[in-house]
């Protein structure tokens, strides 16, 4: 549990960070909250020769409005997300889900950028960002580009980030007024990754589901959008048969690994239950 030696860099601007990363190449890793990278280094499963610490870059902090979007700087901590009235009021599912990330000590340090950029299917934010239709701003030596969260995740720890690129902000479209939402997470204990979790954002019209988006956490090597499950509930009042159909559609795209949280069959089964419960709770909240 002792890391190997490495050089430490603390750039003051995104441009400097990008330059360092492109100059140092594959031997360099950007450091945000460190919750994933540092343990890997202590186990010597990651042995970067250079760490580029992003904590010195003021431009990567903060939450601001940009039209109908909330733009969140990548180095904004989970604690800061929880403290934001703007998030609590306009994207309450984000507030709800962040509260389910580990414990206060972790949230003081953990960042939204690190959480979404690492490509860890166990993290809670990626599936939620897909559900919300968020986009990520990626900046590299060749300039900046925006990638939809739904297009970002390619495999476990594999993302659309190119070598030398940094994820600098997350842009979240504010859901419609009166929308219903829920993030249902089954976990063994505080600090554990989800056995399975489901995010639901929906709107109702005349007691029937008008729009719906469903995201799934930790039931596949990437976060998932359960589009068939979401389609299955449109135009329904979420009766028992519909819920069953939606859960089955969601389970059909799950491919979790068997681990200490349970065998594949169990994780898929509770994944379906999380979808059902999230749909019911979201509908109850919708106006």
């Amino acid at each position: 549990m002792i890391p190997g030696s490495f050089s430490y860099h603390r750039p003051a601007s995104v441009a400097d960070a990008v330059k360092l990363l492109s100059d140092l190449g594959d031997d360099a890793r950007p450091l945000a909250g460190g919750h994933s990278l540092v343990p890997m280094m202590k186990l010597r499963l990651a042995t970067p020769a250079h760490l580029v610490d992003l904590h010195g870059i003021a431009a990567l902090k903060g939450i601001r409005r940009d039209g109908n979007n909330l733009v969140i700087g990548a180095m904004t901590t989970q604690h800061e997300l929880l403290a934001s009235d703007d998030i609590a009021q306009s994207v309450p599912i984000l507030h709800e889900a962040v509260l389910l990330i580990a414990d206060p000590q972790v949230r003081y340090r953990g960042t939204i950028g690190g959480n979404v950029a690492n490509g860890d299917p166990g993290n809670d934010m990626p599936a939620l960002m897909m559900t919300l239709g968020a986009t990520y701003r990626l900046e590299g030596a060749g300039g900046a580009r925006d990638v939809a969260a739904a297009d970002f995740y390619q495999g476990a720890y594999f993302t659309a980030l190119e070598p030398g690129e940094i994820l600098t902000s997350v842009s979240v479209p504010v859901p419609a007024v009166g929308h219903g939402y829920a993030y249902e997470k089954l976990k063994r204990k505080v600090g554990d990754y989800a056995t399975a979790a489901a995010a639901v954002v929906l709107t109702l019209s005349g007691g029937k589901v008008a729009t719906c988006s469903i995201g799934l956490t930790n039931v596949h090597e990437t976060p998932l959008l359960a589009t068939d499950a979401a389609k299955a509930v449109i135009g329904t009042s979420l009766d028992a048969a519909t819920l069953k159909k939606a859960a089955a559609a969601a389970e059909a795209i799950m491919a979790p690994a068997a681990d200490a949280r349970g065998p594949v069959e169990y994780r898929k089964h509770v994944g379906g239950i999380m979808v059902t419960r999230a749909l019911q709770r979201a509908a109850a909240k919708a106006k």
């Binding site: 089954l186 063994r188 056995t195 949280r261 349970g262 509770v270």
Partner: peptide
């Protein structure tokens, strides 16, 4: 008696 074993 963890969760998955109870389910099982």
């Amino acid at each position: 008696h963890d969760f998955w074993r109870n389910w099982k």
